[in-house]
């Protein structure tokens, strides 16, 4: 699976600790979340299918 380059929510790069990349649970869009957004549990929305996580 290819890696996302930016956080889907805030646009930050994903090189810092705590960031992750995955395929949208309900479609195949590649989603990146930065450590900050994950730490704060900020919602993310898939731009392709509209899935809202976490």
């Amino acid at each position: 699976m290819k890696k996302a380059e930016k956080c889907i929510t805030c646009g930050k790069g994903l090189l810092e600790r705590g960031a992750t990349t995955f395929q949208c649970p309900t479609c195949d869009e590649i989603i990146g979340r930065c450590g900050g957004c994950r730490e704060q549990s900020v919602d993310y929305i898939c731009p392709k299918c509209g899935f809202k996580g976490p």
């Binding site: 705590g18 992750t20 990349t21 995955f22 649970p25 979340r33 994950r38 730490e39 704060q40 549990s41 996580g53 976490p54």
Partner: peptide, 17 residues
């Protein structure tokens, strides 16, 4: 990525689903 069973007392930090 992290998936978790979450109860009402859980926080969801670092959880993706």
């Amino acid at each position: 990525p992290v998936i978790a069973l979450c109860d009402t007392n859980n926080e969801t930090r670092y959880i993706d689903l």
